[in-house]
């Protein structure tokens, strides 16, 4: 039971990164980015590419992949989402599903459906009072916590963060006050690209790289963001921890193949009982 709780916390931290990314883009652009799963996958494959073909160690490969995906995300924003930003948010949502479809199949085109692994050494798990924590999990904890701290600093302490929060609150007012929307949006996508790449690499380190690794987390990530009150990055972290723990502890009772099914049930319950999310505020619709 304690082991399941620990595993749940770790996998929750992992889900938290894309959940923050989802909340950030949702807050600023007012649409749910359904390509978040495909972005995780793309990040993992980019890291794999740099790691195995260029032979760079993963600690070097991951940042390079993160920068690459950040650039790709900005290109997608400028090439696609900005072109249709005047359409309703459902059109943007459908477009993001199209983007996911394209990204996933570009990966299949170049890499096929084969399962691959990153080129890293395998180490013995640490154990403490009967609780096991392997090195990948330790790495997940370190990386995710540092990334979250960085995001928090950016949001609370920098000019960019203030601009992001302002636009999220009231885009028109922000624009009137001279905040450059396009630049802020680009940066948001860049952060989103970095966070999803980190998540992709961590997932790949803990297991394998295949074209569905990100999509397999899509429902959990959305459930986390919705529980946290979508658009609220700090709520997303709490939501992710809840989802992680529920998924891992339910594995004691239900077959692990139903992990996504569990997220669906939690999501449906939250939507029915507390639709603004556990940490969101009910808003009056305009």
């Amino acid at each position: 039971m304690m082991q399941a709780l620990l595993n749940g916390l770790v996998s929750g931290l992992l889900i938290a990164l894309p959940a923050i990314a989802l909340s950030l883009t949702y807050g600023i652009l007012n649409f749910a980015n359904f390509s978040i799963g495909a972005m995780i996958t793309t990040g993992a494959y980019l890291a794999y590419l740099v790691n195995t073909t260029l032979g760079a160690p993963i600690l070097v490969a991951a940042p390079i992949a993160a920068v690459l995906l950040a650039l790709i995300a900005i290109v997608i924003q400028r090439g696609i989402y900005r072109q249709i930003r005047n359409a309703d948010h459902i059109t943007l949502l459908v477009a993001s599903m199209g983007v996911a479809f394209v990204l996933e199949n570009v990966i299949r085109f170049f890499f096929g459906a084969d399962v691959r692994t990153l080129d890293v050494a395998v180490a013995r798990p640490l154990s403490w009072n009967g609780l096991r924590l392997n090195h990948e999990q330790l790495l997940i904890v370190t990386v995710t916590l540092s990334a979250m701290a960085l995001v928090a600093i950016v949001l609370k302490r920098t000019r960019l963060g203030r601009a992001m929060r302002a636009i999220s609150d009231d885009p028109e007012l922000a624009e009137v006050r001279g905040i450059e929307r396009a630049r802020t949006v680009d940066w948001t996508w860049a952060i989103s690209g970095v966070l999803t790449t980190l998540a992709g690499v961590l997932i790949a380190l803990d297991g394998i790289v295949d074209p569905l690794i990100g999509t397999n987390y899509l429902v959990s990530v959305f459930a986390a963001a919705v529980i946290g009150g979508i658009g609220n990055p700090f709520g997303a972290v709490a939501g992710a921890l809840i989802i992680g723990i529920v998924e891992e502890t339910s594995a004691l009772a239900v077959s692990t193949t139903y992990r996504q099914g569990i997220s669906f049930v939690v999501l449906a319950l939250v939507l029915l009982l507390r639709p603004q999310g556990l940490f969101g505020f009910a808003r009056i619709k305009r």
Partner: peptide, 19 residues
């Protein structure tokens, strides 16, 4: 709720059906 939530609920439903 607004429609975004239906999008994710139906997607999650579809995944659960597949499982």
């Amino acid at each position: 709720l607004r429609e975004d939530y239906l999008a994710i609920t139906t997607l999650a439903f579809s995944e659960s059906v597949r499982l």
